[in-house]
Simulated scan of single mutants.
Amino acid sequence: MNRTRTNYIVDLILLLLFIIVAFTGFFMYLVIPEGIPQGRYQDYMGLTKATWTMIHNKSSILLTVFVAVHFILHWKWITYIKRNFIGKSEKRKDEYLCEEKSPDQFNS
């Protein structure tokens, strides 16, 4: 499997997991009553509160794992961008510190 296809599959899984986590999170927040005694055994769209929580938690864990995989697959790009960004900001700082001041600037 080539790198482009791997990135595509990982990104597709990330999108799917994000949608599941977002939907279950909003659904539990807006529809299912808070607190353990309220609604523990009631069905919401065919699933109990415990099932909704389990789906949300398992999907969140998988989302975190695939985000880590995504960072690993793009680590070379991340380090390249970081090096260019930090390198440019340090260069600007060095240029500012090394500027020669005219004697008039010190006297004012």
Score class of each variant (00 low, 15 high):
M1E: 12
R3P: 04
R3N: 14
T4L: 07
R5M: 10
V10F: 03
L17I: 02
I20F: 03
G25I: 05
F27I: 04
F27R: 01
Y29L: 11
Y29M: 15
V31S: 05
E34N: 13
E34P: 15
E34Q: 13
P37D: 08
Y41V: 13
Q42C: 10
D43A: 08
L47S: 02
L47F: 05
T51V: 12
T51L: 14
W52G: 05
T53H: 06
I55D: 03
H56G: 11
N57E: 00
S60N: 04
L62R: 01
L63Q: 09
L63F: 08
T64H: 06
V65H: 02
V65N: 06
V65S: 02
V67I: 08
F71M: 15
L73D: 01
L73I: 05
I78F: 03
T79V: 12
Y80D: 14
N84G: 13
F85H: 15
F85N: 13
F85I: 15
F85G: 09
I86D: 14
I86A: 02
K88A: 11
K88V: 04
S89W: 03
K91E: 14
K91F: 12
D94E: 11
D94S: 01
Y96N: 13
L97C: 12
L97W: 03
C98L: 08
E99R: 10
E100G: 13
E100L: 11
F106Y: 15
